[in-house]
Simulated scan of single mutants.
Amino acid sequence: MINVIVSYQVKPEFVTENKLNIENFLNSFKSLDNNKFNYSVFLNTDGVTFTHVSNYQDEQIQKEVLNTPSFLEFQKKRDDSGLNDSHKVQVLEYIGSTNNII
């Protein structure tokens, strides 16, 4: 299993557009096999920090998810919006959960 947390801050004027872009790729993800991955996005109480939490059964589904055209478009728009150095990627070892993640 692959577990990743990505966090970043956007400019306040980009928050609404970023939310729409996220909604767009999450809708696209619904057409994929959701038994093989989980993808959630959160907005911090500061109103500008987004956190993406993803769990993948294996590299194959991770590649499929991350190469979805709407996700690639989201990334480009997000990066072009002028991110600061807040972008952080963490790969985590799964230990356990109260629910079955995948």
Rank of each mutant, 00 (worst) to 15 (best):
K36T: 12
N44Y: 04
N100V: 15
S81Y: 02
E64F: 04
F25T: 00
S70V: 03
I101Y: 07
S54L: 02
E17Y: 04
I101L: 12
E59M: 04
S86K: 09
L83A: 01
Y39P: 02
F29D: 04
T16F: 09
I102S: 09
N99G: 09
S28I: 01
I101W: 10
H87A: 13
D58I: 02
Q60N: 12
F29H: 03
Q90G: 06
L20R: 02
N99E: 08
S54E: 15
E59R: 11
V4H: 14
K76C: 05
D33F: 11
V41R: 00
Q62L: 12
F71L: 06
Y39L: 10
S28R: 01
D58R: 07
K77G: 01
L26H: 09
R78H: 02
N27F: 09
V4I: 15
D80Y: 06
V15C: 06
L26F: 02
L43E: 15
L32W: 06
S86T: 13
D85E: 13
D46F: 01
T45M: 12
H52N: 13
T51A: 13
S54N: 13
V41A: 04
E13C: 11
S54P: 02
Y39E: 00
L66A: 01
T45Q: 11
I102E: 07
S31I: 09
D33W: 14
D46Y: 02
I5N: 11
N18M: 01
S31P: 05
V91K: 14
S86V: 07
Q62G: 06
G96V: 00
F50H: 03
L32T: 07
V89Q: 09
G96M: 01
S40K: 13
K88R: 07
N99Q: 12
S31E: 12
K19C: 15
Y39C: 12
R78N: 06
N99I: 11
N34C: 14
S86I: 10
K36W: 05
N21G: 06
F25W: 04
N34M: 15
N67P: 00
H87D: 13
T68H: 14
L43H: 07
K63M: 06
E93S: 15
K11I: 09
K76N: 10
N38V: 08
F25D: 01
F14W: 05
G96L: 05
N3K: 13
L92E: 06
F71V: 03
Y94E: 11
V91H: 15
Q57K: 11
F25K: 00
S40Q: 14
D79N: 13
L43G: 05
N99L: 10
D79G: 09
F37T: 03
N35I: 14
F37G: 00
V53S: 08
E23S: 14
K76M: 06
K36V: 08
D46C: 09
